[in-house]
């Protein structure tokens, strides 16, 4: 256990001390922030007003700002949880590329512990950054217009941690096959650029064509993003009822902003989204364990202390 703790601590230190690893991991969230400030923020505000139509006169600017802020922060967290996990796993690939892995493997530490240490450190680093982002996000939402309940706050943290676990498992599998700096840089860039679109963080799924919307519903990340949208925007949107906005319109808005997802026309309840997320995490972790076991067997020495 001490060895595991020591390896995890080393990987975490390396991530935060190596500017070449830490700073690129913030690219995807920064792109999203930039897009929001540049034009997406106004697009969302206009979109909310257009959905409300004549009822937009009934709601306050605080309502619109609160919904827009909820969308931004939920999208930011959904993207960060996965893209930062890929960046945090750079430590594993760098170790393989620079020879540190070889050095660790000539020590008596079992290979399984080394693999677990990369997984745990990736989860911890990503969780830490996301928890800081959550704290910052809550401050921003409080300034824009706070409508969240205590349950929303807790569920938002749970959703983020589950997405981090999902991102950690996925990135661990991908990074298992990478052995060069070039390889991980290519993967990091691709994931940073594409994941936001693929999980419905940049654009509500409702804005996409039906076939693409249905295709994205096969990706587990979409369900995590949907949960975050619901827990950071749902209460804000529902608060419009206090201003006299009809419940049908509120339900439409929630669907339009991916708070309520549907799979080929069937509504997906929150528990089903959690189930999809959990099953995918178990599956991905299982695949990672299998890959590691096969690799250790090939090396010929799954050792014991």
């Amino acid at each position: 256990m001490k060895t595991l703790f020591s390896l995890v601590s080393r990987h975490c230190k390396l991530y935060f001390k190596d500017k070449g690893v830490f700073l690129p991991s913030l690219i995807a969230p920064l792109i999203l922030l930039f897009l929001f400030i540049a034009f997406l923020g106004n697009v969302y505000r206009d979109s909310i007003r257009s959905v409300l139509g004549a009822f937009s006169a009934l709601v306050s600017d605080g309502f619109i700002e609160g919904v827009a802020a909820g969308w931004l922060i939920s999208s930011l967290l959904a993207v960060s949880a996965v893209t930062i996990a890929f960046s945090a796993n750079v430590v594993m690939v760098q170790d393989k590329a620079d020879g540190q892995a070889k050095d660790i493997f000539v020590s008596p530490v079992p290979r399984a512990i080394v693999s677990v240490s990369y997984f745990v450190s990736t989860f911890l680093v990503t969780s830490l950054i996301c928890l800081v982002a959550i704290a910052g996000g809550f401050v921003y939402i409080a300034i824009a217009g706070w409508h969240l309940t205590f349950a929303d706050v807790l569920l938002c943290i749970l959703d983020t941690l589950l997405l981090v676990l999902f991102g950690t498992s996925l990135s661990s599998i991908v990074c298992h096959f990478l052995h060069s700096q070039g390889g991980i840089a290519a993967v990091e860039t691709t994931v940073s650029a594409a994941y936001g679109f693929l999980c419905g963080a940049y654009m509500p799924l409702g804005n996409l064509t039906a076939w693409l919307r249905n295709a994205l519903m096969f990706l587990p990340g979409t369900y995590g993003t949907g949960l975050l949208h619901e827990h950071l925007m749902g209460a804000a949107i529902e608060s419009a009822a206090d201003s006299g906005v009809p419940s049908e319109l509120i339900a439409g808005m929630k669907e339009g902003f991916d708070c309520n997802l549907s799979f080929f026309g069937t509504a997906v309840p929150a528990w089903a989204s959690y189930l999809v997320l959990l099953c995918s995490i178990f599956l991905l972790v299982g695949i990672y364990v299998l890959l590691c076991t096969v690799k250790f067997r090939k090396k010929g020495n799954v050792q014991t202390r």
């Binding site: 390896l7 601590s9 080393r10 190596d18 620079d98 020879g99 530490v109």
Partner: peptide, 24 residues
């Protein structure tokens, strides 16, 4: 090893501490 196996962003002491902990 021919290529240094030390972690470049960490200090010499941190490197030695990390390595020593692998041996308890």
């Amino acid at each position: 090893f021919q290529a240094s196996a030390l972690d470049r962003p960490l200090s010499v002491e941190e490197n030695l501490r990390n390595r020593a902990s692998l041996y308890g």
